[in-house]
């Protein structure tokens, strides 16, 4: 059985790949996709630790999985809204280029 560190390492790698993707991609959809990747990486880490802590007691172990469950629900809602916003923007500009959407100036 592989130790928890391996799973956490994998989670870290996936997370950073997702982060780099967020910064590198220019289309809003692609950025969104990478955010989903990051979320999943976090889920993996949680489940791995849930497994690790299950040895000490039920509540600790099962709480990790419950958290992932909730995160999944949140992610679903978030995707719905996010894609809705994207569609609305695309209607206005016919482009999803993030750099062109640079009106967030302080």
């Amino acid at each position: 059985m592989v130790g928890t560190e391996a799973y956490v390492t994998l989670s870290a790698v996936l997370f950073t790949i997702g982060a780099v993707g967020v910064l590198t991609r220019r289309s809003a959809i692609m950025i969104f996709l990478c955010v989903e990747l990051m979320l999943n990486a976090a889920n993996l880490a949680l489940v791995a630790y849930a497994y690790q802590w299950a040895g000490t007691g039920l509540l600790t172990g099962i709480s990790g999985q419950t958290a992932v469950f909730i995160i999944l629900a949140v992610a679903a809602a978030e995707v719905a809204i996010g894609l809705g916003i994207l569609v609305a923007i695309f209607r206005n500009r016919a482009s999803t280029d993030v750099d062109a959407l640079s009106e967030v100036r302080l």
């Binding site: 910064l23 220019r26 993030v98 750099d99 959407l101 967030v104």
Partner: peptide, 14 residues
Amino acid sequence: LQTGYVRNYALAML
């Protein structure tokens, strides 16, 4: 620093 590009801000946050 205030470029207006979201990605720059995202990089800084990250």
